[in-house]
Amino acid sequence: MKIAVTSQGPDMNSPVDPRFGRASHFLVVDTDTGEFSVHDNTQNVNAAQGAGIQAGRTVADLGVEAVVTGHVGPKAFATLQAADIRIYPGASGTVQEAVEKLKAGQLQPADRANVEGHWM
């Protein structure tokens, strides 16, 4: 399965970025092979508004089936849901650890946003 993990750095040992919309990187990981690619999200970090929506569009375009992150707001949630992408919030530690947890079934998919949006 191809997933996106929000990351504070460009490799699997980087800490998970708890933010979704303004995460510094997305690591796109193939959970079967362990291969990954890096997607820089710097442009969105500084986005004026709608960072969650734009990040949702970005990961949808990356063709992932699931997103692993810390927090997800209502607009990002709606965007990911529209793209049929499952959302696993509450991840912490390194990206590698988060992927292992997901594979072990220790992360629960969210059925709603787990933080309030910044609204603007």
């Binding site: 004026a48 508004q49 709608g50 734009q54 569009r57 965007t79 990911l80 529209a82």
Partner: peptide, 23 residues
Amino acid sequence: CGEICRFSAIVRVGKKVLVYPEL
């Protein structure tokens, strides 16, 4: 539509176009 919108009020995601009226 999503490219021109400066407010992220409309965006194409996968095979859908979403509208966020409050934005």
